[in-house]
Amino acid sequence: MRKEIPLVIMVACGVFMAIQFFVPHELPALIYQNLNKTVQVVGAVALVLGIVSLLSLHFAKINRRQPGYGYSYILIAFFFMMAASGFLPAKVNLGSFLGTGDRVEGSFYLNLYNYVLTPVQATMFALLAFFIASAAFRAFRARSVIATLLLLTAIIVMIGRVPIGPFVLGDWISDLADWIMAVPNAAAKRAVIVGVGLGILSLSLKMVLGIERAWLGGGR
């Protein structure tokens, strides 16, 4: 029964979801909405499990004095601080540095968002530029004819998509870069998209038919 009941729910929901797309009537829309709400509830419960898992991992680290356990203290402290900032009553004032409990400019919550989360996230994303540079340096080698083609295409697109390209070499370079993006690139992508779409369809069918059961845990 541990596997049959989920399977029945899965089949029912799968078939319903496929059909409801074609039915404009409000009844399936209502069921659809409620199913989605269920997903939200399940997600919320799973989030609690996730948080328990995260915190117990770090408490265990501290308990066992594993290397780097000091960071676990920081994680736990910031975890509770960010959560608490969202629950602060509007009247609370933590001073001009930390901010108020209100959800307007200058609140503790928005200060954490604007002055901690924003710069940290922007920095992490900016790291991508450095990773791309080092990956490009390593990977773009003219080892074979195909690799040379890839290398040349990459250089044309890189130079053609920034203003210095057409400024120095003329408009043809940006036109060529745009052509590469719009024609060969798009054609290859479409082919992959079709393959992916069919793959998704076939995987979904296998799940609805009960052929694919990995998601039930442990395979067949």
Binding site: A46, A214, W215
Partner: peptide, 10 residues
């Protein structure tokens, strides 16, 4: 989070 619970199960 949901992926996490499924992964644990798997």
């Amino acid at each position: 989070p949901i992926v996490f619970t499924i992964c644990q199960d798997i």
